[in-house]
Design a protein around this nucleic acid. Structure first.
Length: 424
RNA sequence: GGAGAGAUGGCAGAGUGGUCGAAUGCGGCGGUCUCGAAAACCGUUUUCCGCCUAUCGGCGGAACGGGGGUUCGAAUCCCCCUCUCUCCGCCA
């Protein structure tokens, strides 16, 4: 969430900036400012009454100690009306504070300077493209046929066990999945990330910290009996590690990497393009997370983009990197790069990674700050994360792009992990 | 799941109704001493909000796991919740 200070000081700027996200902020911003003013007005009154109350209470203590009972009794009577006044003010403050908070969290993060306005995916900016598009024969199959042909991923079996969108990986399919996870983790550790294995269920506070709650509640699976949520991404637990913390500037940047299964209800998003591995309720993903000094977060973003690029290059899939326009960028993000890989049989670009800088937006919700050595004041950190990578679509691309007469050829870097060079 | 004990500052640990935001120790930071370091000594060291101030800062309010209550006054008493530990049971 945006900080109250920024809203107070930069009303016009915020309204202008959020237009890039096609968000009309004027009404909310003005309501925030009005609520903030009345909150302060109430506090000024309450604080002075409270100060008076504290003064009298202390005095009563002293009088009783000196055995001046009557004076103490007189003082006590004087507090009664004060007490009522304070109570009335406090009752007045509660809904104001609640509403203020509810309004602030409705404001999206401000997009970075480089983010262009737009209406949809067609306005995203392609910043780089790489890899060679394979020449497939005319009888090339989409991955949903290939997985049946080689019996490596079983959707029907998943339906039996759970439901649609929960596939069972079998044999070389399971091995390929495990190989990719290991490869991604190893590459991340080599790039200086610390491997983490977080819980895949989180509490409400964690859901709020990274911005999934309260709005995207319907997108997460909820375990009602314990009030836990299944994580939609490792971003949630791995970023929330730093909730309610004041870090030393010498600890920054923090770089963590985690593999977790991810769970998404994907309510209302099923359609023509979601066959096979294109969209699942449970999938595997390796996520990188950085907690950085605010002055260096864009260097970290670039570094993360390069890291993800090195992965798609190593896997020898055609890819492109797009910088999302205002319409496509998420509520919480200031700048996002999407990685898309070319899936040759579907003849489509598939998103396999999304790398974002949230600046201080999540940090403010998380209350994650840092202090420069010698400074009295703490400042909010910047948080970033990115997929490195999400598995299903990269698997789809590998299967489709690498299909040959004798089977599916594994990218060379994976062979030490899979133990085979063809799925046949 | 049952029974009991507990949750206090970065950590350890006192405090059971009144000048307690909190003793003491450790750690951290600054200084004295030293060529430098250690030791010793001195000082300093929670966070959030508001008001005043160009700034340094000053003043006020709140916070002792979370929420509610009793009281002129709550770390301290009462209720609910969460978590931790010990014992028993169960168990990958």
């Amino acid at each position: 969430m945006l900080t109250l200070n920024l809203i107070r000081e930069k009303r016009e700027f915020i309204i202008e900036r959020l237009k890039i996200k096609n968000f009309d902020a004027e009404e909310i911003v003005d309501r925030v400012l009005a609520l903030d003013a009345s909150r302060r007005e109430i506090q000024i009154k309450t604080d002075s009454l409270q100060a008076e109350m504290n003064r009298i209470s202390k005095q009563i203590g002293v009088l009783l100690k000196e055995n001046r009972k009557e004076e103490a009794e007189a003082a006590r009577e004087a507090t009664y009306s004060l007490k009522d006044e304070i109570k009335a003010l406090q009752d007045k403050a509660v809904p104001v504070e609640e509403e203020l908070r509810n309004e602030i969290i409705r404001l999206p993060n401000l997009p970075h300077d480089l983010v262009v306005p737009g209406h949809g995916a067609e306005d995203n900016v392609i910043v780089r493209q790489g890899g060679k598009t394979p020449e497939l024969t005319t009888n090339a199959l989409p991955h949903w046929d290939l997985i049946k042909k080689y019996d490596i991923i079983d959707f029907e079996l998943g339906i039996k066990l759970t439901g649609a969108g929960f596939p069972v990986y079998k044999g070389k399919g399971a091995r390929l999945e495990r190989a990719l996870i290991s490869f991604f983790l190893d590459e991340g550790v080599r790039a200086g990330y610390t491997e983490m294995m977080p819980p895949v269920l989180v509490n409400e506070d964690s859901g709020f910290g990274t911005g999934q709650l309260p709005d995207k509640e319907g997108q997460m699976y909820h375990v009602g009996i314990d009030n836990f949520y299944l994580i939609p991404t490792a971003e949630v637990p791995v970023t929330n590690i730093y909730r309610d913390m004041i870090l030393g500037s010498d600890q920054l940047p923090i770089k963590n990497i985690a593999y977790t299964p991810c769970f998404r209800r994907e309510a209302g998003s099923w359609g023509a393009h979601v066959r096979g591995l294109n969209r699942l309720h449970q999938f595997d993903k390796v996520e990188i997370v950085q907690i950085t000094h605010p002055d260096h977060s864009y260097e970290s973003l670039d570094e993360m983009v390069s890291h993800v690029e090195s992965l798609v290059k190593a896997l020898e899939v055609p890819y492109r990197i797009v910088r999302l326009c205002g319409a496509d960028i998420s509520f919480t993000s200031a700048m996002t790069y999407d990685f898309e890989v070319w899936s040759a049989a579907q003849k489509r670009w598939l998103e396999v990674s999304s790398v974002s800088n949230f600046e201080s937006f999540q940090a403010n919700r998380l209350k994650c700050r840092f202090r420069e050595k010698g400074d009295k004041q703490s400042r909010l950190v910047h948080t970033l994360n990115g997929s490195a990578l999400a598995l299903p679509r990269i698997v789809a691309a590998i299967l489709e792009n690498n299909q040959e007469e004798k089977g599916i050829k594994m990218p060379a870097v994976l062979v030490p992990y899979t133990g085979f060079d063809y799925i046949s």
